[in-house]
Structure formats: structure tokens, C-alpha cells
Amino acid sequence: MSGEFSDVAELIRRFDAYDYLLDVGTATALYLALELGRPLLLEGEPGVGKTTAAKALALSLDAPLIRLQCYEGLSANEALYDWNYQRQLLAIKLSEARGDALDEADLFTEEFLQERPILRCVRHRGPAAPVLLVDEIDRADDEFEALLLEFLGESAVTVPELGTFTAMRPPVVVLTSNRSRDLHDALRRRCLYHWIDYPEPERAVAIVRRMVPSANLALIEHATAFVGQIRGADLDKAPGVAETIDWVSALVTLGVADLVREDVVVSLGALAKTPDDRAVLRGELMKGPP
């Protein structure tokens, strides 16, 4: 989708209009993926904005977003295409009632084809190419990656009974991974790559201010500094930007103006995701503001 943005700066401005404050590194990776027509693999810790970046990209391009949420056991029938077995069975019964005979070729036609996210992207005929978000690819099985290779390399899907479908306009593909397992080299070679890190303190403050405008600056600065500080602690799940936003929103809802009141502790459910992490965060919080 070359030419959608004149340069990296314009991409940053367009994302800003949808409340996503891009850093230059991520903006450059997105810009190059569009200009070169290559899939983009975004990796980073949970909560740094990988999924939201794909959503903001679709909004900025005024393109439909098609999301494929990955999980263990994800199959081709759920990701690429499937057959409408109920309609096939009904067709068989109606044919028998008429005294006709249906062979296999009659049952495996486009009439009975069900599009799943990837085939839906390939067959999309709207004014703008869709953005396909393959979310948390690391949660799918190793075998699933092999199913993506034809699509990532050729923007095509082969249905043995019908042939190969190729996209009129290659979709914009963003894959995300939390690095819960290593991805195969064959998949990585087909993608541009970018690691999204936790934002630096100044940008973290700007992001939270944008997303929680009702919070005062002192609360935001102390909350983001605290979160940045405790990421170095021994936590099961270090809080990301998303958790920071949730926490500040919770504090505002509780009427907390700064991290000095003891009742801040009751809001930690927005930040900590395990009992052990809650205990660690409570201990750090009771030491006082960073």
C-alpha cells in the first residue's frame, strides 16, 4: 500500500489523531512495511501497544481491520477457510428428494465455501485493502506457522477443490508476538521486524495524559514513574502501558489525587495480575512515591 503516507512524520501525525503516540522506531517500521509491501512482525512485552498499533493503522488508512486471534490448536479451518457442512447436507437431502444425484464436485463449490479471516482478506473487494492483524502468533502451534507461508509470501490461499485465490490488492499484515516461544525462521524471513519497548518516562506520561485526561499531572507522573520502577522487581507479569492506563483510570475513579493515600492499595487489582505481584507492588507502594 505504497504512497498512503508521504513520510514517517505524516504517519506519526495520523496516528496521533487516533490517540496513538508513536515513537519514531515503530513509526519507521510501519512506514517501511507499507512502502515495501511486506508483513510486519511486532514483538514486545504484553501491554506495550502492539495490537493497538495495528488497530490505529487500520483507522489511519481508513481500511477494514480483520483480526485473527491465535491460540493453541488453531487450525486451517478456523484461520483460512472451511466448508458449510450443514448446507452441504441440506443440498444432499434436497437432491435425494428430487431423485437427483450430487457428486463431490457439486458439494465443494464457492456456494458452500466459508471464508475465515485470511481468505476473507484475500477475497476482499472494498475500496481499501484490509489490515490483517494476526494477534499473538506465538500462542499458536508451530504447525500453524506453515499455513501462513503461502499467504505471507504471495497474498494467496489455495483451496484444493477450487484452486488458488490471490488478492487484488495485497492486505497489510501485522503479526504480534509476546515471545512466549520462538517463531520459525521461515516466517521471520517473510516479515519486516520491530521490537516495541516500554516507553521512556516522558512518552509514558504523554500517553497516559492522552488516555486519562481527567487525571492531574502529578498523579500521572508519580504513577508512571512507579510502574517504571517496579518493572525491575521480581514480578510474574510486569505491568505494561495498558495496565498503567487502567491503574490511573482506577485512581481517578477513586478520587485519588496522588500516590500518598493508603487507600491507593485497593486499586492495585488494575496493575497486578497475580497475588504474588500484588504483594510485591503493595510493599513498594507503601515505601512512598518514587
Rank of each mutant, 00 (worst) to 15 (best):
G99F: 05
P199V: 00
D7H: 09
G240W: 05
H124F: 09
P39I: 02
F15L: 02
V159M: 13
V227C: 10
F226V: 02
L30N: 01
A29M: 00
I220G: 14
D82E: 15
S75E: 06
L102F: 11
D19Q: 12
D277T: 02
A215D: 01
D246R: 05
E200L: 12
D236H: 10
A53R: 03
R14A: 04
A76C: 08
T109Q: 07
L254C: 10
D234I: 07
R282F: 03
R13Y: 13
Y198E: 11
L148I: 02
W247E: 04
K50S: 01
A27R: 05
L40P: 01
E35Q: 01
A105R: 10
P275Y: 11
V265W: 08
E4I: 05
W195S: 15
R231E: 13
I220S: 01
E4W: 03
A156M: 09
A218E: 13
I137A: 06
E136K: 01
M211G: 08
E221N: 09
R188C: 09
I118D: 03
N178E: 11
W247P: 10
V48G: 00
S60E: 12
T158K: 01
N84Y: 03
T28S: 12
L57Y: 00
L251G: 08
I92A: 07
Y18W: 15
L187F: 01
Q229T: 11
N84Q: 03
L152S: 02
E154N: 02
E284A: 11
C70P: 02
L22A: 08
N84S: 07
E202S: 14
R278N: 13
V227N: 06
M286T: 14
D103N: 14
R188I: 14
L80V: 00
A204M: 10
N77V: 09
Y18F: 15
T164L: 04
G288C: 02
P171D: 06
V256K: 11
A76I: 04
L254G: 09
C121H: 04
A225E: 10
R190Y: 14
E43A: 12
I230A: 07
A272D: 05
E200G: 13
K287R: 14
D103K: 11
G240H: 00
L271D: 07
P160E: 10
A218C: 15
A167T: 01
D234M: 15
I137G: 02
L74P: 06
G99V: 15
L192H: 04
P117R: 05
A215K: 00
K50H: 03
F5I: 04
T166G: 13
D141T: 06
C121A: 05
Y31C: 00
D246V: 11
G126L: 08
F112N: 03
K50D: 02
G255H: 09
S177I: 15
I66A: 08
A218N: 09
F5Y: 03
Y20M: 14
W83V: 10
I12Q: 12
I196A: 02
R188T: 15
E110A: 10
G3V: 11
R87H: 09
K50L: 01
D82P: 07
L251Y: 05
K93C: 04
C191S: 08
R13T: 05
V173K: 04
I12T: 04
